[in-house]
Structures are given as structure tokens and as C-alpha cells.
Write a protein that binds this DNA or RNA. Sequence first.
DNA 1: CCACAAAACTAACGATTGTTAGTTTGATTT
DNA 2: AAATCAAACTAACAATCGTTAGTTTTGTGG
Lengths: 188, 188
Amino acid sequence: MKPTRKQEIISRAASLFNERGYSAVSMRDIAKAMDMKAASLYNHISGKQEILSSLILEVAETFTNAMQQITSEEIASVEKIQKIIEVHIDITVSFSENIATLNNDWMHLEGEDLKRVVKMREDYEENFRSIIQQGISEGAIKQNHPEVILFSILSTLRNLYLWNEKRGKMDVNVLKKDMVSVMLKGIV
Amino acid sequence: MKPTRKQEIISRAASLFNERGYSAVSMRDIAKAMDMKAASLYNHISGKQEILSSLILEVAETFTNAMQQITSEEIASVEKIQKIIEVHIDITVSFSENIATLNNDWMHLEGEDLKRVVKMREDYEENFRSIIQQGISEGAIKQNHPEVILFSILSTLRNLYLWNEKRGKMDVNVLKKDMVSVMLKGIV
DNA sequence: CCACAAAACTAACGATTGTTAGTTTGATTT
DNA sequence: AAATCAAACTAACAATCGTTAGTTTTGTGG
């Protein structure tokens, strides 16, 4: 399916947001990238804020759904963490610019959208935290501070999108294997 | 020593940059946080860009110096990585808002400052990469893809600043021990 | 207490911001 | 060929941007 004009606008805007950030990109910048005038954008979208929220909500919901799926599975905690890593890689491949916008510009969301995204993020982290804690109490995960484990893995996963040139040359399955190995078993 | 007026301005501006990003913070916002009018800021600084570049250059040079110090030491590669982790934690404690600005707003630097910061970043990564590669060739580090190791550790370290409320309750030395353990030896 | 300098102020500038109103173009359908 | 409608356009708006010029206030050392 070829993308609608609206989808094109959102996609080009995402590239610009990722280069300079939401606030530094004007509607005229987006229009220029589309080869049109700023006013014409409003035939397709209701405003700058709609571009931001559709970029962010799309990927935030994708992550939420993936996490709920994994949480509900009846497998060992370590296996759940492995699946989280793999699903992060998959989503990053498909939504790399949405993720960049989520990471960098979520605070420019307004009203209900902002609340929803913050809530989804908190829930996501809480689910992840539970998995780690269960792994520790089962003895499958070492007794490090759970927050340190959570933070280390999540930081790496959330920044995967920064890594697209190098990742492009690397097979996704090899990447998954290496990431899982480094994060679960360490490097020494 | 009590801070100069200029230092106060830069420090308050850093807080605002971290909440909303450089582009979304106006000189009038900074002035309001200082309880003065925007024009008065110019008695102390040459412009918005000077605030940004002094925040970023200060911490970028701190990292560069620390890395050069570690590189020059005659210790095992794994020990070097451990020192990098520890020094990142120390610098994050002292310069957390500078680091946030470096991470999020470096692209709004202009001219020579931008070039310098990008160069320092590349050099830093290259030094880190060499240490990892030497560790692998010595057999002290597992044969994962070096870029995966570099990226995983660096992502975690660069995002430490996001973690200040929780870290505040945690002893820095305990944090260092846990971080080193998680990143070097894994979690399972 | 006066002189001087540092640091605040008011006012304004030209540029740019997101957005709206009203109009024209161009393609498709009747 | 006429009618229709989506999608482009021009023009303009009020607000805000970083910054400058010129003036007044504030505090300090002689």
C-alpha cells in the first residue's frame, strides 16, 4: 500500500524531529521537506501537535502490547527478559524514528496524550521490574540491586535506535544473540 | 566559593534545558527563573549560545581528560573498563545537568564548538573501542561483536543522569560495585 | 557623601512562530 | 462539458523569539 499524504507528512516530520528536536522544527520546515507551503499541511493534519502525538502513541502502544503479551506467557523470567530484548530490537527496526521522537520529545506532548504516555511508560517499567524481581527470588538472577539491572538493560534498549547505520550491516538475528548474551551473561 | 551571577544563570538555564530542551527555553524563561528581565542577562553572558556551549564543553572536556588518563595507565583492559564505569558515575554525580544537555542538545551548538564536541565524542568512542578490542584479543573479554559491547555499556553510562532520584538514596560505592558487576559479569 | 561601576531596567527591532481565512488549481465523476 | 471536491495556493494574524540601545537603580570604595 502506498502511504497516504498524511502518513508522508508525519514520516518526513519525524526525520526532521530526529535531527533537530520537535521545538526546533517549524511547520514551514516540514512543508519545505514536502515541497509545499505550510498552510497546505493543514488540509491533512490538525496541527503540529497531532504529528507529535501520532508518532509517539503509535510506538508507545506497540511497546505496551508487546510487554503485556510477554508478561502473560508462562515461561521463566530469564526467558521473558530475553524476549523483551528481542522484541525491542524488532520494534526498533520497524519504528526507529518513532522511538527517537518518543525518547527525545515526549515532554512536548500536551493534555491527555502526555498523561497516557507517561502512564504507559510507568506501567512498562513496573512490568519489567516485576519480572526481574521474580527472577531474583527464584534464584535465576543474581542478587544485584533490581533497579540497577532494570536501568542498565532499559537504557541500552531505549537507545538502540541511535545505532542504525552499524546495525544495518548486521544481521538482526546475530544482533539479537549478541545483545542477549552481553546483557544476560556479561562480557568477561 | 559562592557562584558568580554568570554561573547562576548557566546553572538555572541548565535545569530549564533539561525539562524542555534548548530550543523550547527562551531567554525570557531563563530570566524569569532568575527573577530578572531578559535584557539583563546580557550583562553577564553574550547570548543563549554561550550558555549552551559552556555547559557542554565543560563536561565534554571532563570526559575527554578522564578517558585519556585511563588510556595511559598500564593496567589490564578489563580494569580499564571498570575504571571507565566508575568515572562515569563520579562525573554524573557532579555534572548531571551538563550531561543531560550534552546528550540532548549538542546538535544546537554552532560552528567550531559543534565540531569540537563531535570530535571529542568520536575520539572517546574510539579509545573505548580500542580497549574492548584489546581485551578480546587478549582473551579477557568474550568474542561478542565489539560494537555491541561498546554500545551496550556506553548507552547505560550516558543515561545514568536520568537516574538521579533513585541514585540519591543509594551509596555511590554500592552503585559502582553493582554497575560494574552487572555490566561485566551479567545478571544470570 | 560622593563618584564610579556593576547590574538592573524600559522600549523596541526585525525575524520567525503556529495557525486561520479565503482563493485557485487540477483531477475525477456525472 | 459541467459539477464536484481534495489539495494546493496567497496573505495575513497575533504572539513570541534573540538581541540591542539607552537609561535608571544599586551597591561599594575613597
